[in-house]
Computed example of a mutant assay.
Amino acid sequence: MKKTFIFLSLISSVYFYSQDFSSINKILEKIEAKGKKMKDATNYDLKGKKFVLVEDFEDHGERHILEFNIDGSLTMIELIDDKSTGKSFSNIFTGDYIRKKNAISVRANFLEGKQIAIPLVYNLYLMNANDVWYLKDINNSKRWIENNNLIKKKK
């Protein structure tokens, strides 16, 4: 009797878990379908490109400029504008990056030529919307817009 009960419970649990797996597969298929709509950026060259992130806070404003150099390194300039005093401060970070298709991992481990203990690390995803290239931070969804798209061309 015990063996029959265990066997039936095992069969019923497999049946109910298989229903959960089918719903998970449906969700994964939807995610893959959305992923296929994203533009593949393997042919987009980052070397020589600049991306800008602008943030505004109550007491200060921040502008971050991320430049991918031709030699494979990167430079990140952080400009901080203090609203109460009107003064501006800047930090210049240098480092390197790794790119795999649309995913880019950025590590800035030097502050004005001196190595820092905890480097700045960003995990970014290269995206395109309406022919505007931008980097989306995976951790906090902030967007770094390509500098060429910020400059309005005069006709």
Rank of each mutant, 00 (worst) to 15 (best):
residue 63 R to T: 14
residue 26 K to T: 05
residue 13 S to I: 09
residue 125 Y to K: 05
residue 35 G to R: 13
residue 47 K to L: 07
residue 120 L to W: 03
residue 27 I to W: 06
residue 51 F to A: 11
residue 62 E to L: 05
residue 102 N to F: 11
residue 142 K to N: 12
residue 34 K to R: 13
residue 128 N to P: 04
residue 53 L to E: 12
residue 116 I to F: 04
residue 53 L to I: 06
residue 94 T to S: 15
residue 128 N to H: 07
residue 49 K to M: 09
residue 67 E to L: 02
residue 108 A to L: 12
residue 81 D to E: 08
residue 63 R to F: 06
residue 28 L to F: 11
residue 64 H to W: 13
residue 82 D to A: 03
residue 113 G to Y: 01
residue 58 E to N: 07
residue 148 N to K: 08
residue 53 L to M: 08
residue 12 S to R: 06
residue 61 G to W: 00
residue 9 S to I: 05
residue 29 E to T: 13
residue 155 K to P: 04
residue 66 L to H: 00
residue 147 N to M: 06
residue 89 F to D: 09
residue 34 K to H: 11
residue 142 K to H: 11
residue 3 K to D: 12
residue 60 H to T: 03
residue 25 N to M: 09
residue 76 M to Q: 10
residue 107 R to T: 15
residue 124 L to Y: 10
residue 53 L to T: 11
residue 136 K to Y: 13
residue 120 L to T: 10
residue 21 F to C: 03
residue 144 W to D: 10
residue 109 N to H: 09
residue 88 S to Y: 06
residue 144 W to F: 15
residue 37 K to N: 13
residue 77 I to K: 02
residue 1 M to W: 07
residue 30 K to M: 08
residue 24 I to N: 08
residue 123 N to A: 09
residue 75 T to P: 00
residue 21 F to H: 10
residue 147 N to E: 13
residue 23 S to C: 00
residue 104 I to F: 05
residue 141 S to E: 12
residue 88 S to G: 07
residue 69 N to T: 01
residue 71 D to W: 00
residue 133 W to S: 07
residue 151 I to Q: 06
residue 121 V to S: 07
residue 6 I to T: 04
residue 3 K to N: 09
residue 64 H to E: 11
residue 153 K to Q: 13
residue 35 G to M: 11
residue 155 K to H: 12
residue 9 S to C: 14
residue 117 A to M: 13
residue 36 K to M: 14
residue 16 F to E: 00
residue 142 K to R: 07
residue 96 D to T: 02
residue 47 K to Q: 12
residue 85 T to Q: 03
residue 103 A to M: 10
residue 92 I to S: 04
residue 106 V to N: 02
residue 143 R to M: 14
residue 21 F to W: 13
residue 38 M to I: 14
residue 145 I to M: 09
residue 79 L to I: 07
residue 143 R to C: 12
residue 57 F to A: 02
residue 148 N to L: 05
residue 112 E to Y: 00
residue 65 I to L: 03
residue 95 G to S: 04
residue 2 K to R: 07
residue 43 N to I: 03
residue 62 E to N: 05
residue 132 V to W: 04
residue 39 K to C: 11
residue 140 N to H: 13
residue 92 I to M: 05
residue 11 I to A: 14
residue 72 G to A: 05
residue 11 I to V: 15
residue 87 K to N: 06
residue 97 Y to V: 00
residue 20 D to K: 13
residue 76 M to W: 11
residue 139 N to A: 14
residue 101 K to I: 14
residue 16 F to D: 00
residue 46 L to V: 04
residue 107 R to C: 09
residue 116 I to W: 06
residue 57 F to D: 08
residue 61 G to H: 00
residue 139 N to F: 14
residue 3 K to E: 12
residue 137 D to Q: 04
residue 57 F to S: 03
residue 66 L to G: 02
residue 54 V to S: 10
residue 126 L to F: 08
residue 52 V to A: 02
residue 119 P to I: 09
residue 127 M to Y: 09
residue 101 K to E: 15
residue 73 S to L: 03
residue 133 W to M: 09
residue 35 G to D: 11
residue 153 K to A: 11
residue 122 Y to Q: 05
residue 99 R to Q: 14
residue 81 D to R: 01
residue 108 A to S: 12
residue 15 Y to P: 03
residue 113 G to Q: 02
residue 114 K to W: 00
residue 109 N to T: 03
residue 35 G to A: 10
residue 66 L to F: 02
residue 49 K to W: 00
residue 28 L to G: 12
residue 8 L to P: 02
residue 110 F to P: 00
residue 31 I to L: 14
residue 124 L to K: 01
residue 124 L to G: 07
residue 137 D to C: 08
residue 110 F to K: 06
residue 61 G to N: 05
